[in-house]
C-alpha cells in the first residue's frame, strides 16, 4: 500500500493554545485510518489543517505526493480530498435529491458541461446513493426537516456523490441512533471496499472505530500519543489513561 496523505511535523497554535504539536501521521491508500483522542485533543484542528481551512504554523502536508499545506479549501477539494463536518452541513432548503445533484463532482466538469441539465444517469446515481444510506423514501423532503442523524447520512451520501479519492469524516456516528450505527459501519466499509474510497475517520465511539480501522492514531493534548493497529491501541496503557484522565 502507498501513502496517500503524509502529515509531517505539523504544528498549529491558536494564540497561546497549542492545538497540534509536531504531529506526523500517514494515511494508506485504500485503507481505513482512524483518529481518536479525548475532547480537545486537536483532532478537528488536524482535519482542518489537512483540508486547508487554516494555515499551519510549521511542517508539511502531502496528498498523493503533492504539497497541499499552502493551498485553499476549494483547490484541495478539487484534488479529490473531501471532508464532512462535525456540525453537519447540508443545503437545508433543498430536498435530498437536489442536495445530491449539487454534489456532482464539478472538478471533473468543463464549463460547457456545467451548462447542461443533469442526465437520467445522474438522477439514478443520486437515488441509488440515497438508497445506499437509507434515505430513499425521504428523497423529496426538504433536507432541513430531516433529523440530525438523517442529515449526517445525507451528508455522507453527498460526499460519495462527489466521487472523492479520500474522505475525511468528522465523527460520522455522533448523533446517530445506536440501532442505526451498525448499518452505518457497514456502509462506511462498503464505501471503502466497493467504491474504493480511502477513509480517514475521527471517531469517539471505540466500538465503531475498532471495528473498522486498519490503523489508528491517538492524539492527546495536541500531541501524537500512540499509533498502531486497533488491538495495539486497545492494549496501550497510555491511551486508556488519556481517556480516563490519568496523569
Amino acid at each position: 500500500m502507498t501513502k496517500i496523505i503524509e502529515v509531517n511535523n505539523v504544528s498549529k497554535s491558536y494564540g497561546g493554545v497549542k492545538a497540534n504539536t509536531d504531529i506526523s501521521i500517514e494515511v494508506q491508500q485504500g485503507g481505513i485510518t482512524g483518529l481518536i483522542g479525548p475532547n480537545g485533543s486537536g483532532k478537528t484542528t488536524l482535519f482542518n489543517s489537512i483540508v486547508g481551512y487554516h494555515p499551519i504554523d510549521s511542517g508539511s502536508i502531502r496528498f498523493e505526493g503533492k504539497e497541499i499545506s499552502k493551498m485553499q479549501v476549494q483547490d484541495i477539494a478539487r484534488l479529490g480530498l473531501l471532508r464532512t463536518f462535525q456540525q453537519t452541513r447540508i443545503y437545508g432548503d433543498m430536498n435530498c435529491v437536489e442536495n445530491m445533484l449539487i454534489s456532482m463532482p464539478h472538478r471533473k466538469m468543463t464549463i460547457r458541461e456545467a451548462f447542461t441539465t443533469n442526465t437520467r444517469a445522474d438522477h439514478d446515481r443520486a437515488e441509488h446513493l440515497l438508497d445506499f444510506v437509507g434515505l430513499y423514501e425521504k428523497r423529496f423532503l426538504r433536507s432541513g426537516s430531516l433529523s440530525f442523524g438523517q442529515q449526517k447520512l445525507l451528508e455522507f451520501a453527498m460526499a460519495l456523490m462527489n466521487e472523492p479519492t479520500v474522505l475525511l469524516l468528522d465523527e460520522p456516528t455522533a448523533g446517530i441512533n445506536p440501532t442505526l450505527i451498525n448499518g452505518l459501519i457497514d456502509r462506511l466499509k462498503r464505501a471503502n471496499s466497493e467504491f474504493g474510497i480511502t477513509l480517514f475517520i475521527i471517531e469517539h465511539n471505540m466500538r465503531v472505530i475498532m471495528n473498522m480501522a486498519d490503523s489508528i492514531y491517538c492524539l492527546a493534548h495536541g500531541e501524537l500519543l500512540a499509533s498502531g493497529t486497533p488491538s495495539e491501541i486497545q492494549g496501550d496503557q497510555r491511551v486508556v489513561d488519556a481517556y480516563l484522565g490519568a496523569h
Binding site: Q74, P105, F115
Partner: peptide, 29 residues
C-alpha cells in the same frame, strides 16, 4: 435554472463554505 450551473449557484447561496468544501468553482461561478 435547470442546469447544473444553477444548482451550483444555489449551493453558494445556501452554504458557500460547504460549496467550497465540495470543490465548486465558487468565484468563477
Amino acid at each position: 435554472y435547470s442546469t447544473r450551473f444553477a444548482a451550483a449557484i444555489n449551493a453558494i447561496r445556501d452554504d458557500e463554505e460547504k460549496a467550497e468544501a465540495m470543490g465548486l468553482h465558487t468565484l468563477r461561478y
